[in-house]
């Protein structure tokens, strides 16, 4: 079991800002390990995920990722509601980043795993928040990634959908992948017995 990610004393401030969003944050993650990042709104939880993805750059410190680390990213929301794409097509997107060249069987397997196979032909934009989250998780599973980043996975979910999501996360098998989940939802964080990192609002 090796280290796949090491964040060392990282700090971040937006280019136009004179204040740090967070500073002196350190954490690491091994293969198949789970990390829950909790904290209030505006404390930089989502920013940490974007730094890991390379969408933003750290202002100080550094983040070291294992070479060729395959990262799947599940967003909080999808601001493109009118885009005509089926749930199955969304899951198929995961194949683009799948280095094992798995085919449609992987799509079906991933959709079965998150309980969204029956939604395959539906337009993604017509799905409820919970259904979209299942489809997005299936896309990530389909990517066969080393690390899964979940950004506020319980946003916009009703109680039933949240329970389903927690059940999926609890039942991830040991050999699947490492996971970093960001949440400020106490119901989710209390249900998951994962390593934790607390962020604070500056």
């Amino acid at each position: 079991m090796g280290c796949i990610l090491n964040a060392n004393n990282i700090g971040f401030s937006y280019p136009d800002s004179t204040e740090y969003l967070f500073r002196n944050l350190s954490f690491s993650l091994n293969d198949n390990e789970r990390l829950l990042i909790t904290g209030p709104n505006g404390s930089g939880k989502t920013t940490i995920l974007k730094l890991i993805l390379g969408m933003l750059s750290v202002t100080e410190g550094n983040i070291k990722l294992r070479e060729n680390l395959n990262i799947a990213y599940c967003k909080q929301d999808y601001p493109n509601p009118g885009f005509p794409i089926s749930a199955e097509e969304v899951v198929k997107m995961g194949l683009y980043g799948n280095r094992n060249n798995e085919g449609l069987a992987a799509v079906r397997r991933a959709m079965e795993r998150t309980g969204c196979l029956h939604l395959a032909g539906r337009l993604f934009s017509s799905l409820s928040g919970g259904e979209r989250q299942r489809v997005s998780l299936a896309r990530c599973f389909c990517q066969n990634a080393d690390l899964l980043l979940l950004d506020e996975p319980s946003s916009f979910l009703d109680t039933d959908s949240r329970n389903t999501l927690v059940s999926i996360l609890q039942n991830l098998e040991a050999g699947d992948f490492a996971v970093i989940a960001v949440t400020h939802d106490s119901a989710v964080s209390s249900a998951l017995d994962w390593k934790r990192l607390e962020t604070e609002a500056f």
Binding site: E89, V90, M93, G97
Partner: peptide
């Protein structure tokens, strides 16, 4: 077609998937 459709869907998802 595949990367273009991913970009149209969501830039962050496309980027994280290697597009």
């Amino acid at each position: 077609f595949r990367p273009v459709s991913m970009l149209f869907f969501d830039h962050d998802i496309a980027s994280s998937s290697g597009v």
